[in-house]
Design a protein around this nucleic acid. Structure first.
Lengths: 169, 169
DNA sequence: TGTTGAATATACACAAATGAACTATATACT
DNA sequence: AGTATATAGTTCATTTGTGTATATTCAACA
């Protein structure tokens, strides 16, 4: 278990030097960062045994979450939160592993369709039990209603992003 | 604002194919991942104007959060959630920018001490107003008591990590 | 139709992050 | 004291991620 107390102590010091620094927002941002890194590292650890990394796993699961096991790269980029250039690389890797196939789209010839192969589905069936165990472990400290409460708050926070004054684009 | 509905739809499809896949844990993990990416991207956007990126900013703020503006690399790695090899690289960059200095430690000659320079402090004073604005914006959708509630739940979740069956080490 | 502007995917050069090996120092144990 | 073991930090090779330019196709519209 990680100890978050030092982080809070640092925040107190920071606020003593610069009182306008807002405690709650800063705590939340740092908590999310730490959680993400833990989740990411643990998932990578589990997946290494299957010859995959976390982003590749995400791509596979996004495809698996589609009714016909297929998506376009731009959809994938949005779903997995990866830049499109990165999706190209990741899907190329997965193609080389034989887990997905690329094919042109007829309705819009700019588009490419990425589809899970039987081998890809088999790989998913292979690692999912381990992932399910991991997911349960990562949330074991939260009761069911706490998980729902947390989901609600995170969604609310996420909804505040990207509005006016957002990133330069 | 990001729309999270497609992610939930994908989860429903996934659960139809593989019922054991746990909805709440998966939603939470994906929400945290999306939030982190948004936070990271927005911070990078703001900081670019100051010639810094998010990890460099984090290092500076961890040092700033120390009473005497100094830390050892291993402490920094833990505090900023970075691998030690990465801390070496990041602190080298910050040294080159003149924001921190490296010095040996007398009590333990294996250790290195990293200290903010006056230039580093000036840089912090320079970008902090912008960061404070950003932090407020990123949490604008949450009332004060919601922020506290969220903090509590995230801490509780984080506390469940790294226990038995953790990553291979 | 022909032209303009937007969208899709990729290529490529560069930046950032990681794992594993290595050096140096400290600590524990006999 | 002497040897084994652990810790702190760095280096290096490799993997992973990003920004920008480019080719292709589509959509809008004069």
């Amino acid at each position: 278990m990680r100890d978050f107390a030092p982080t809070e102590a640092r925040l107190d010091v920071t606020r003593a030097k610069y009182p306008a620094f807002p405690r709650e927002p800063a705590v939340l941002v740092r908590l999310i960062k730490h959680l993400f890194k833990e989740i990411h590292d643990e998932a990578n650890g589990k997946l290494r045994a299957y010859g995959l990394n976390h982003p590749e796993y995400n791509i596979l699961m996004m495809l698996y979450g589609s009714p016909d096991n297929r998506m376009h790269p731009s959809e994938l980029a949005d779903a997995a939160g990866e830049k499109s250039a990165n999706v190209t690389r990741l899907t190329t890797q997965l193609c080389e592993k034989g887990y997905i196939v690329r094919s042109g789209s007829e309705e819009d010839r700019r588009k490419v369709t990425l589809t899970l192969t039987p081998e890809g589905l088999a790989a998913i069936a292979d690692f999912l039990p381990d992932i399910v165990t991991l997911l349960h472990r990562q949330t074991r400290n939260l009761a069911k209603n706490e998980q729902e409460q947390l989901e609600l708050l995170l969604k609310k926070m996420l909804a505040g992003f990207g509005g006016i004054g957002g990133r330069a684009s």
